[in-house]
């Protein structure tokens, strides 16, 4: 494998990993803070992508498109991302209020299936209201390809990776520096005691769902730019894989979820050239459709050696006062 080929795949892996990482953050935060798996989160990513589609169509209608547009495409894109993040945050807030808060003291398994049911409701509502056909995501910015010494990079890939890393850095700053972030970290350590120091638990829970959902919306729009076809089930396998990244990253670690997301993207993308090399060396004929089998066997192996994930933070295991 020459260096150019490796670099090409690395860039693809960074883009693919960005989606996983952004979605994994939502899983990871809710899990850390409420000891709860929000299995609806993959579908919130889907809802975010569709909200992004709707918002961008409305904006394009207002400002016009092509040569007659009032503002350049990237302005529409930035506005679409911000507005959709804001709107999808409310979807997360509703999910918390309707699906999870009433079950706060219920057995954990009940809260887990809530997520599955909400996910199915979101998927089927999409089919109900939009007819279930695949929809094209408008390409808000002109695609440009740069040739860097034989490695091809598009402006979209650069943008997707930079926006993702920007959002992750912002979240990291928020969690480590603000008092809201401090409350989130305290909750991740011992959520039972949080009300005892005067911190409103529900407010922090709502905020966590809102932030996670907003990030999933950003991932949805960036995904729509890279792969411009949306369908109601796009969140299912993506959601599961991002969930894997969240757990692999380790409980309570923002950085862990991000790194694990990128790592998952890297393993998945790199498995295909890996298969090709093995085929050539040993004259085998392994199909690249075995990608996920091989990729997730590697992930499983990592988890066997690091059962607490890569960067898990310590926490108190006490579930009551």
């Amino acid at each position: 494998m020459n260096l150019n080929f490796f670099m090409q795949n690395l860039i693809n892996a960074l883009q693919w990993g960005s989606f996983y990482a952004l979605i994994a953050l939502g899983y990871s935060m809710v899990y850390s803070i409420l000891m709860l798996f929000n299995f609806a989160h993959g579908d919130i990513f889907m809802v975010g992508a569709y909200i992004g589609l709707g918002v961008s169509l409305v904006l394009l209608k207002i400002v016009g498109s092509g040569a007659a547009a009032l503002v350049p495409g990237w302005v529409v894109l930035v506005a679409t991302i911000l507005i959709s993040m804001f709107l999808t945050a409310f979807v997360g807030i509703i999910v918390e209020r309707v699906g999870y808060r009433p079950l706060r003291d219920a057995p954990r398994a009940s809260a887990a299936i809530t997520g599955l049911m909400i996910g199915i409701i979101l998927e089927t509502s999409n089919i109900l209201f939009l007819g279930g056909q695949r929809l094209a995501f408008p390409q808000l910015i002109e695609s440009q390809t740069y040739n860097l010494g034989g490695v091809f990079i598009t402006n979209k890939k650069i943008m997707i990776v930079l926006v993702s890393i920007g959002l992750m850095t912002t979240l990291h700053q928020f969690v480590t520096r603000s008092r809201w972030g401090m409350a989130m970290r305290a909750m991740a350590y011992d959520f039972v005691v949080v009300p005892l120091v005067g911190v409103p638990l529900n407010t922090i829970a709502v905020m966590t769902f809102a932030i996670g959902s907003a990030l999933a919306a950003a991932a949805g729009i960036l995904f729509g730019l890279a792969y411009p076809v949306l369908d109601p089930y796009m969140g299912v396998s993506f959601g599961w894989k991002a969930f894997v990244a969240a757990i692999l990253g380790g409980r309570g670690s923002i950085m862990g979820a991000c790194i694990a997301g990128f790592m998952l993207g890297f393993i998945e993308i790199m498995t295909v050239p890996g298969i090709q090399i093995v085929n050539r060396l040993f004259e085998l004929n392994i199909g690249s459709n075995l990608r996920d089998l091989i990729a997730y066997s590697i992930v499983l192996a990592i988890l066997v050696f690091r059962p607490h994930g890569l960067f898990g933070e310590p926490y108190s295991a006490k579930l009551r006062l």
Binding site: A183, A186, V193, V197, G198, P200, E313
Partner: peptide, 19 residues
């Protein structure tokens, strides 16, 4: 039941959250 992952200062500041 302190927040073991927070510093001494952060534990004290967090207690002022709603003040």
């Amino acid at each position: 039941r302190l927040f073991g992952n927070l510093t001494v200062m952060e534990n004290l500041i967090l207690a002022c959250f709603a003040r």
